[in-house]
Amino acid sequence: MTSLAGLIDRLEDAVAHRTPLEKEHVQAVFFLFPLMFFIVGFILMPVLGTLYDAFMRDVIFLEKEFIFFTNFRYLFSDPGFWNAVRFTLLFVLISVPLELAIGLMIALVMNETIPMRGLLRACVLIPWAIPAAVSGRVFELIYNYSYGAANWLLRVLHITTEPVNWLGSEIGAFIAVVAADAWKTTPFAAIILLAGLSAISEDLYNQARIDRAGFMTRFFKITLPLLKPVLVVTLLFRTIQALRVFDVIYVLTGGGPGGATEAVSNFAYKYFTAGDFGYGSAASVLLFVIALLLSLFYVKASRFGEA
């Protein structure tokens, strides 16, 4: 204990006798420490662990062994993996632009001075505040064949007599997953875009109005170009998030029917729970590579536009 007290004394001493700049540095280290600890302990270590595991035969019933790229070689010839990659990319391609488009519309409305704007903004955020597992379950209750809200509506409105098995076809399950995800994440896009919109000076619009620019012209000539950096950031965030989609699918379709809605994360999880950590890690690493490539592409493409 004495050494601990001594340590604290010396620490205080060190902080007290420094020039302001040095003091700031010492303080900075102090304040940065929790973050660094968190990043190293909960992000860097697991990521490196996964990378390490991807090159190992880490199966609970076999000897652990370094096997170079064998996991990857099997992955490349695994139709289940390619099916998951295909679904995940398609999911990103459809859901992200959809969420951004609807999010932009919501942001434009929320940016206007309309009555009860505060309440409206709060309401829009509700889906984002709900855990994906919960919203997945909610949508499952909507699509449920026997007692779901969607089939109830069809029956009450006399549109069909036979209930529809919404999650029963590949395309139906795909649309259901995209809808559930869009419902949940559109508010996220809307809020970020709203922040971008409110940063655009009202003067520009007033000048444009003097020049008799219509709504459309104002939108395409002022709003969109000035919003572009924020749009790219939102697109980047959403793309990375959508690539690692897991919970909505786990709850809503379980990857079915016939693996039609199985994302790469679900694929990896399946192997983790079966005790094959190496193979699951290799799939996760490949997902990371895909996310990295897409992010680089976005960043490059957006800079290209500015030049």
Binding site: L11, R18, V29, F33, F37
Partner: peptide, 13 residues
């Protein structure tokens, strides 16, 4: 300094 302080903080934590 930085290294020393952060090292000690690490131990402390």
């Amino acid at each position: 300094i930085r290294r020393r302080v952060s090292g000690r903080l690490l131990i402390l934590l």
